[in-house]
Amino acid sequence: MINKKVANAEDAISDIKDGDTIMLGGFGLCGIPEKCIAALVRKGIKNLTCISNNAGVDDFGIGLMLQQKQVKKMVSSYVGENAEFERQLLSGELDVELIPQGTLAFRCMAAGYGMPAIYTPAGIGTEVAIGKEVRNFNGKDYLLEKAFEANFAIVKAWKGDTAGNLIFKATSRNFNTVMAMAGKITIAEVEELVEPGELDPNHIHVPGVYIHRIFKGSDYEKRIEKKTTSV
């Protein structure tokens, strides 16, 4: 098996540089690549374009990169819950492109399947449609949305093997699988890293062919954004 293992987050992100476009998996704070985000913050590279469903909270997730003013542009579907984000956006330091959540997923999916674009009805008749090609199929209008191009995708999985095969837990799958498939270089951080043969091939969510680097992260915080319980 081809070995994708690298030592740690620093090694995994070593060639990410100023101005790169990075996809970051996760939904809210669920399933975010917290070890690579920490390494990007330590490295201090700037002018990044981040494609991620959300922008973290003030002191966790992509919010940590925003605090260090490392992000030039966010491409997201929802960016609430983040005061520093709001401040930078209103002051003009940060650019944001808001796109429907399904479109975000499909543009990743298209990249991972080698398709240049997809058609979706999301955004028809709204400002999202401005400047985009509209085509009618069977009496319904659809927008042409292009596949993303990202130098790097960074995802977080539950388990992986050194061949890069990944398994996700619960709703942390979210954007991680499609982003893993979409990056020119894809980095996976995992809670548990095993040797080839230890994961059941029937249970693999993303095959290792899509993964270029994999490492085991430790001491995951897995912060909960809105802990809600019943009695």
Partner: peptide, 22 residues
């Protein structure tokens, strides 16, 4: 690792299924 679209912690019922955003 188990939240809803409002980012609240939740549970799964018997017969639940998980999938990705696409």
């Amino acid at each position: 690792d188990l939240i809803n679209a409002g980012k609240q912690t939740i549970t799964m019922l018997p017969g639940a299924a998980l999938f990705d955003s696409a």
